[in-house]
Simulated assay, not measured.
Amino acid sequence: MSEIIFIASSFAIGFFFESIFGFGGGIIAYSILSFFVEIKTAIIAGFYVGTLSSLYIVAGSHQHFEKKIFLKLILISTIGSIFGVICFIYLPVKILSLIFGLLLIFIALKNLFLEKNLDPNTELELKKKKFSFLKLKLILIGGIAQGAFGTGGPFVVNALKYDFANKSSLRTTMASYFLFCNILRMPFLLYKNEFSLTFFKEIWWIIIPVFVAIFLGHKVHLKIKPQQFKIGIGLITLIAGVKFLFY
């Protein structure tokens, strides 16, 4: 029981921050859990928590959903997510996680130091560069990471952060993306018997403190300044990169 309480606390902390910044809940939770819980157990618990949490965010903030961005994400994310699930089932995670980690650390440092104080004109130019080749690659990698670990958010957010109308549209559209990818993952995980009914009976209640954390995180989200929001994205991306290195 103490392990389940620890899992619940870890995901509540993680999704408090995801509710603020639109991603990172799984990464933060896994960063805590990896010291005490087998990583595949944490990922399966994250699948349950992440799916219901995303549904909760979408239901509560659907008015901020950006349909055009979401629809453009679907094809690339579908390919990446399916490939990622196959990697999760059949391959050791070390090689993939090392590549993901190094790439995310590079992106995070770029965000924190090179893009920290972009002027409005530069940001406008970045907004105009819709779905460049680099963005497409990051979205594909994000799909793979989402399928393999349930943690593709840092890649997708960093690819599209200048495309969203505002921070709330980023939060809601990313939640929709996570929900979509998890629905894609489900048949593969069921087919390979990765789900344990006994395990889900033990952890069903952990979504309750997570919902409370999401509610509180949204209160912070509404008050946070755009510059603080950008720094938060950079820091969570950095945490994600370091975490991937040590999967």
Rank of each mutant, 00 (worst) to 15 (best):
M1G: 14
I4A: 03
F6A: 08
I7R: 02
S9W: 04
S9H: 05
S10C: 10
I20N: 07
G22N: 03
G22A: 09
I27Y: 02
S31G: 09
F35D: 09
F36M: 09
I39Y: 08
T41N: 10
T41A: 13
A42W: 05
A45R: 08
F47A: 12
F47G: 10
F47M: 14
V49T: 04
L52V: 03
Y56L: 13
G60R: 12
S61E: 15
Q63C: 07
H64L: 10
H64M: 07
K67E: 10
L71R: 12
I74T: 13
S77V: 12
I79M: 00
I82M: 07
V85L: 01
I86A: 01
P92G: 08
V93N: 14
L96T: 03
S97I: 04
L104G: 07
L109W: 09
K110V: 11
L112Y: 09
L114Y: 12
E115G: 08
K116I: 15
K116H: 12
D119H: 13
D119R: 03
T122C: 13
T122G: 01
E125L: 14
L126F: 15
L138F: 12
A145M: 07
A145W: 06
Q146D: 03
G152H: 05
P154K: 05
F155R: 02
L160R: 02
K161H: 11
Y162R: 09
D163V: 01
N166G: 12
K167D: 09
S169I: 09
S169L: 06
T172C: 11
T173S: 05
M174K: 07
A175D: 04
S176P: 08
L179W: 08
M186I: 15
P187W: 00
F188D: 06
Y191D: 10
T198G: 15
E202H: 06
I203Y: 02
H218P: 02
H218K: 11
V220Q: 04
V220C: 00
V220D: 00
H221Y: 14
H221D: 07
P226Y: 03
K230H: 15
I233D: 01
I236N: 00
T237A: 08
L238G: 10
I239M: 10
I239D: 00
A240D: 00
G241T: 13
F244K: 00
F246K: 14
F246D: 11
